[in-house]
């Protein structure tokens, strides 16, 4: 007598099977750089507490090409994170209504880009310009 014998396929390497998944893993990988950059800032903060010499040594170390490359990659990762974050944020937000009209997801995405631009200009302006 026939019996049910469903075949379960393995998941190993699943994320290589589809460009969508590869991009997803890239998105998730941005977190490594977010975390490393935060640790890096934390270390800077630590040197600040130790004293001027330590802080200056940290500043000098940042000029090392490896650190420059790291920060270049971290910037790319942060931008990719921002891009993907803004795009999916409407999926987690409660549905917004203006009167009886539902605010389109696209509007919410663009609103975030606007805020992003304002914040970025403010930081760059205050720190670099001032």
């Amino acid at each position: 007598m026939a019996v049910r014998r469903p075949y379960v396929r393995p998941m190993a390497g699943w994320w290589r099977r589809n460009p969508f998944y590869i991009f997803y893993m890239l998105r998730e990988a941005t977190s490594v750089f977010v975390a490393l950059y935060a640790l890096q800032l934390l270390y800077g903060l630590y040197t600040l507490a130790v004293g001027e010499a330590a802080f200056d040594a940290w500043l000098v170390s940042l000029r090392h090409p490896l650190f420059l490359v790291f920060h270049g990659v971290a910037l790319a990762a942060a931008l990719l994170h921002a891009f993907t974050w803004f795009n999916v944020a409407p999926k987690a937000m409660p549905v917004l209504y203006l009167g009886s009209h539902r605010v389109a997801d696209r509007t919410l995405v663009w609103a975030q880009y606007l805020i992003f631009a304002v914040i970025s200009v403010a930081i760059l302006g205050v720190v670099l310009g001032g």
Binding site: Y37, Q40, L41, L75, A82, I115, F116, I123, L124, L128
Partner: peptide
């Protein structure tokens, strides 16, 4: 998303 890109530019690239 909102802060890190600009901050990385400042601390990681512009300052060094």
């Amino acid at each position: 998303a909102f802060v890190l890109p600009a901050l990385i530019v400042v601390t990681g690239l512009a300052a060094p």
